[in-house]
Write a protein that binds this DNA or RNA. Structure first.
Length: 277
DNA sequence: CCTTCACCCTGCACGC
DNA sequence: TGCGTGCAGGGTGAAG
């Protein structure tokens, strides 16, 4: 479910309700997430939440001495709830706050996780992350460098968190449509102009999605329970067999690296720069 | 090194 | 109505 914009929206949504609150109670209702949920989570009890940060698709909740790393996987969400709201089926972890509200981690497919770390400890999967796409570290020069000798389809490449973080299946499709690049084009074959367009498109698509509250396809909810609006702005994702908004030709659906891929065969026609014959 | 694939899990839409 | 199939926003690890 959540790509970078949805995680960012989640962060912004919970911040006003949790900052400055102490965690009175940690209730673990289901431990088998992607990584088993540790009893050590209760070390957060009594601590005051000082900050909520995001890196890639990871959300960090900081208190004095410890912090939580939360990944929402495919179907995870965080909600701010009243304590008298009945616990929903997949509300796996509930944090009771000193203002009387609860922060609930909900995840039907359980591909996400919640881990606790000491304040001075940073796990390897965080330190080795690629640059944030919305930062100045993600720029033309960086992009030019990383695509060298990469034969993978450009779509698989921009979804690979080793090179750019936060871009998932929806926004990879959208960014390629926006920059008019064929999703199967080998990364190394992108011309300088295409590189520039794609870097720009990734930034634009992600920031727009954040501005519209993220993309709700089926079940993404903001922490207050409302939906994101970006689904209305999707140009290609999920639109196979409907006319391209630019040229009217039918959007096609193919599979790249096991993920559904949508593109316009006319607007995104330059599959390879190799001159045939 | 690279790419491909199965898999973790539940829910939902679809066809029969 | 029910049942089987395939698919879903992510990421890992093994295999080729």
């Amino acid at each position: 479910m959540p790509e970078l914009p949805e995680v960012e929206i989640t962060k912004q949504g919970i911040m006003p309700h949790v900052i400055g609150q102490s965690i009175d109670r940690v209730d673990i209702h289901h431990r088998s997430l992607r990584y088993p949920v540790s009893d050590a989570l209760t070390l957060m009890e009594g601590g005051v939440i000082t900050d909520v940060t995001r890196r890639a698709k990871y959300l960090m909740i900081h208190s004095d001495g410890f912090y939580l790393v939360i990944h929402l996987g495919m179907s995870g969400s965080l909600r701010i709830s009243q304590p008298d709201e009945p616990r929903k089926k997949h509300d796996h972890i509930i944090f009771g706050l000193s203002n009387g509200l609860e922060l609930r981690y909900h995840d039907p497919r359980r591909f996400g996780f919640v881990q606790i770390y000491h304040g001075d400890e940073v796990p390897a999967y965080i330190t080795k992350l690629a640059p944030e796409p919305l930062s100045s570290d993600f720029n033309d020069a960086y992009f030019k460098k990383i695509i060298q000798n990469k034969k993978q389809p450009i779509k698989a490449f921009i979804m690979d968190q080793k090179f750019v973080v936060g871009v998932g299946n929806i926004y990879a499709n959208e960014a390629l449509f926006m920059s008019r690049i064929h999703p199967e084009k080998p990364a190394q074959d992108l011309k300088p102009k295409e590189q520039k367009l794609l870097v720009e498109a990734i930034k634009t698509v992600l920031s727009r999605a954040i501005g519209e509250g993220g993309t709700t396809l089926k079940d993404f909810v903001q922490p207050d329970g409302t939906h994101g609006y970006f689904a209305h702005s999707l140009s290609v994702y999920g639109r196979d067999k409907t006319p391209c908004i630019h040229c009217g030709v039918e959007i096609q659906k193919i599979v790249i690296a096991q993920r559904s891929t949508y593109f316009c065969p006319v607007c995104q026609s330059s599959k390879s720069i190799k001159i045939t014959k």
